[in-house]
């Protein structure tokens, strides 16, 4: 007996002593890689945003806040910032509201729910780049699906590419189509997590189905809504492929967004300083959105 327990003690002692060695053996390479491919680029990005550099040759020259000043004064860049914010909010609000609505509908014990859920979720799986090009077929000026239908109805065709409002609407609709599936699944999960007894108790007290929705379902969905909005805005503010393939930022730069502008600055305009400043601006916008979301939503839940 005694021998066995001592053997066990020894093995445990060796086991404990191995912790630090093995821990650092695993974490050191991870931290090294992480410093090289995350920490270093993030810091360089910040430094580069204060410089002017083509990225091709030579060294960056320090220009202070000039890049940021340009971002906040140049009408082209201001337009890009505004567009990004407007797109991010529009897409986020529409896709979240729609996701909630569909989740509520699908949660009412409909038959064939799996099939409907698939129809709503599968667009999320598609490649943003490829489906944007398919959408471009729908809106092509000649031979496009929408214009062919219009022509067969003896209506004048619409040249979508030159009309700002149409292009904005198309980008929003396309992004919502691709983005609604994830939040819908999340809302469905949250709805299924609500205890049935809550509804039963309220029904005993004579609550109508509208009151059940207003005073039980919606308040209980607040935490999920915060999560959906915060994770959602990270996606919608980084809108890129939809704009690249549907409008290329046009007409006249009026649908251009930060991601596309960063891409153009880095690779077409050979202006890495502006591209870096742009990504810092985008990062700040994302941070602001997240903070505002948390503030508003937590205040809302306290109010209830």
């Amino acid at each position: 007996m005694a021998v066995l327990s001592r053997r066990e003690k020894i093995s445990r002692w060796r086991y404990r002593n191995r912790h630090a060695v093995e821990g650092w053996l695993i974490l050191t390479p991870i931290l090294l890689y992480f410093s090289f491919f995350f920490f270093f680029p993030v810091v360089s990005n910040l430094l580069l945003s204060f410089t002017k550099w083509s990225g091709l040759s030579g060294a960056p020259t320090w220009v202070g806040l000039a890049n940021y000043r340009r971002y906040l004064t140049d009408s082209t860049y201001l337009q890009v910032i505004t567009n990004t914010i407007v797109f991010a909010i529009l897409i986020l609000v529409i896709q979240t509201a729609l996701a909630l609505l569909i989740a509520l509908l699908l949660n009412t014990k409909v038959r064939g729910r799996g099939l409907f859920r698939s129809a709503w979720y599968i667009p999320t799986l598609t490649s943003a780049a490829i489906m944007a090009q398919v959408t471009a077929v729908f809106i092509a000026p000649s031979g496009g699906v929408i214009n062919s239908v219009l022509t067969s109805l003896h209506l004048p065709p619409v040249i979508f590419y030159v009309q700002v409002d149409w292009m904005r609407a198309i980008i929003v609709v396309y992004s919502v189509w691709r983005g609604v599936g994830g939040p819908m699944l999340l809302y469905l999960a949250a709805l299924q997590g609500i205890h049935q007894e809550l509804y039963e108790a309220a029904q005993v007290d004579g609550a109508t189905s509208r009151q059940l929705l207003r005073y039980i379902t919606l308040p209980l969905l607040v935490p999920m809504t915060i999560f959906v909005l915060i994770t959602g805005v990270i996606g919608t503010a980084q809108i890129f492929e939809a704009v690249l393939f549907l409008s290329k930022g046009g007409p006249a730069n009026q649908t251009n967004v930060l991601m596309l502008q960063i891409f153009q600055d880095a690779f077409s305009n050979q202006s890495l300083g502006m591209a870096s400043a742009g990504s810092i601006v985008l990062g700040l916008i994302l941070l602001t959105f997240s903070i505002v979301n948390i503030r508003i939503m937590s205040r809302g839940s306290v109010g209830n």
């Binding site: 995350f38 993030v42 990005n45 580069l48 960063i262 880095a266 990504s279 990062g283 941070l287």
Partner: peptide, 18 residues
């Protein structure tokens, strides 16, 4: 790092590759 959007380090990473 999880709060940082990918674009914040994409451009310098590209330069590192080049």
């Amino acid at each position: 790092s999880m709060m940082m959007p990918g674009i914040v380090y994409m451009v310098p990473t590209f330069v590192m590759m080049a």
